[in-house]
Simulated scan of single mutants.
Amino acid sequence: MTAIDERLERVERHFGVHLPEDYRLFLRARTGVSQFVPPADDYLMLDSADELIGINEAGEFQDRFPGSLVIGGDGAREMLTYDFRQSPPPLVLLDTAADDWSAAIPQAPSLTVFLDQFPETGWIWGDED
Results as ranks from 00 to 15, higher is better:
I4D: 00
L52I: 14
D63I: 11
E57C: 09
P119A: 07
T96M: 12
P90N: 09
Q62K: 07
N56R: 02
D5S: 15
Y43W: 12
P119R: 01
D50K: 08
G73Q: 08
A108N: 03
S87H: 09
A40L: 02
G72M: 02
P106W: 05
D63H: 10
L93D: 05
R24L: 02
W101F: 10
V113A: 13
G16R: 11
E51T: 15
F65Y: 12
F26E: 01
E57L: 10
N56K: 06
A76C: 15
V33L: 12
N56A: 06
A98W: 09
F118V: 07
D100L: 05
E51H: 14
E9L: 14
L111S: 07
R7Q: 14
W123T: 08
A103W: 01
I105G: 06
G32N: 04
G72D: 00
D63N: 06
Y82S: 04
A97L: 14
W101T: 03
V11S: 04
R24E: 01
V33K: 01
T81I: 07
G67R: 06
Y23F: 15
D50E: 05
A98Y: 04
R64K: 13
Q117W: 04
S34I: 01
L94K: 06
G67Q: 02
V92F: 02
G32M: 10
Q117C: 09
T121I: 00
A49P: 07
S102C: 03
E21F: 07
L19I: 11
F114H: 06
R64M: 02
D100N: 13
F15D: 08
E12W: 06
P66F: 01
H14G: 07
A104R: 10
V17T: 09
D95A: 07
L44A: 00
A104V: 04
S34F: 12
G54H: 09
L8K: 03
A108G: 00
R85Y: 11
T112D: 10
G32W: 11
G72K: 05
D99E: 15
R77S: 14
L115G: 04
G122N: 07
D74Y: 10
G67S: 06
R7P: 09
T31D: 15
A58I: 06
L91S: 03
I4L: 08
S87G: 06
D5N: 14
R10C: 12
L115N: 04
R13K: 14
A108F: 02
D5R: 12
R30P: 03
E57K: 11
L111D: 01
V17I: 15
